[in-house]
Design a protein around this nucleic acid. Structure first.
Lengths: 261, 261
DNA sequence: CGTTACCTTGAATCTCCTCAATACACGTGG
DNA sequence: CCACGTGTATTGAGGAGATTCAAGGTAACG
């Protein structure tokens, strides 16, 4: 359950080890379209709020359901998965986290994670101290607003997933998830990608969309036969996005792309 | 789609019409366990933030997907439903709202609702002006924190529903929803209720848990035959909560019951 | 007293699940 | 270098669970 724990936190700002650490001022996340421009003051606050970076290996458990953590993370690089194991042993995958996503807000707010988070690839995380989140609320109301925005964004994504899982047949569900992931990738990239390159297995997809592994496989093969996608280990190429969107009834949740931390 | 629009906003604080309006100081919601105690200052802020009360009739649309609203509401009394109609005409019910719940945060944050909200009963709502939400973030950081808390709470509820819909068979899903609703009712009541008295139809339940109406009915009848519940129009009596919890793998999400607005 | 909304039940059908077996890529140790 | 184990993908067969269609039934309302 708990994975090989070789995680490493690089602490201290300009110290000897901090050599490779990226200063917030030139954080690559700030280039993402979805992030708003920060004021100098905000940037200074965040620089100070950040206590270091952490690298974790693929397969590591970042948060464990029912436990908490003194940290709050932002994903600088890599993929993670939020999920929960139910009593019958089934796993529900809630969402995948990616560059720019925030991890562990629940732990900060509820004092306890209600789901687990696991790294799918090696990851680089930006680390914030959970107990100082109050300072953020007291001193930086714009950032506080952004926190709420992020939480509401996750909520709306889960609602979207719920609608797909609850109301669509297998073909539509999988088409939906592929389009969703593609849009996620674009959010973190140049915006015109047609390839999802991530260590997501068919089992992950099935667990996210409430389908058995076997049925997931058959459905993916059908999408392939229809010429919508190409699937190779770790690489999913979208060939006919329009068709996938039709199949999924996907409705791009156009949130005014309010920025963030 | 848009319902009979006979909603009525009672404006102005102590004015002639404001006679029945409840002052925040004695707001009954404050008695709820889940609400923390406010400081005088917070209470004053909220009193001032509140611009009135609104009553809506059963069946009214409170928010319409894709649109926004200048208001943000708190439910003083009655039941509502958050849902979305998909392209194929299916309806996904996301959640039911109840005493103490906040409505319309998405509209305030994203400038556009991503789902609709409809009143199931006649309702009484407390009205706040959306554009002044900034003041809350700037002046009352504790309340700002509470906003994030509420958003994260909704997120965790949706995750729970998603796990039920994605991973459980019909019997477990419906058992889950019943237990969930019962706990909601207790949160707004004395804490030992065993009856859910709400105008929730079997169709609502089916639409919430991704089941057809027919199958929902058959499953409810099965739960009745098992002696777990009694179902009469508008009144659902829980006879064997323990059994329902087993069936549903329900895991009471014990959030440290942080208070709120 | 007819209309409407909701609940109920049976039958036929189909989607999706489980079981079972195979195939392929990869890394490890002999 | 090959044998083996592990993780992932693939495919077929049989059956359980859920859907749709169809036809009532019952309570509330004007």
């Amino acid at each position: 359950m708990v994975a090989r724990s070789r995680n490493r936190i690089v602490k201290s700002r300009p110290g000897p080890q901090g050599a490779q650490e990226i200063p917030c001022e030139s954080c690559p996340l700030r280039q993402m379209e979805t992030f708003r421009k920060f004021t100098k003051e905000e940037l200074a606050f965040i620089s100070n709020f950040k206590i270091g970076e952490m690298t974790v290996q693929a397969g590591s458990t970042i948060f464990l359901e029912g436990h908490n953590s003194p940290h709050l993370f932002t994903v600088l690089d890599g993929w993670a998965m939020r999920f929960k194991i139910l009593q019958d042993g089934n796993r529900q995958v809630f969402n995948f986290a990616f560059r720019g996503d925030l991890l562990g807000l629940q732990s900060a707010l509820f004092d306890k994670m209600l789901h687990s988070v696991e790294a799918l690839t090696d990851m680089r995380l930006c680390v914030f101290p959970r107990e100082r989140i109050w300072e953020l609320y007291h001193e930086q109301s714009n950032l506080a607003y952004d926190m709420t925005w992020m939480a509401a964004r996750e909520e709306s994504i889960l609602a979207q997933h719920l609608a797909a899982v609850g109301q669509m047949p297998a073909l539509g569900r999988i088409a939906y998830l592929i389009v969703f992931l593609l849009h996620q990738v674009r959010r973190g990239g140049r915006g015109n990608e047609s390839v999802i390159s991530a260590p997501i297995t068919q089992e992950h997809i099935g667990d996210a969309m409430g389908l058995s592994l076997v049925h997931t496989n058959k459905t993916i093969r059908k999408l392939q036969a229809m010429g919508c996608i190409e699937w190779q280990r770790q690489v999913l190429r979208v060939l006919d996005e329009k068709r996938l969107i039709e199949l999924s009834g996907y409705d791009r949740q156009e949130r005014e792309e309010r920025p963030f931390l």
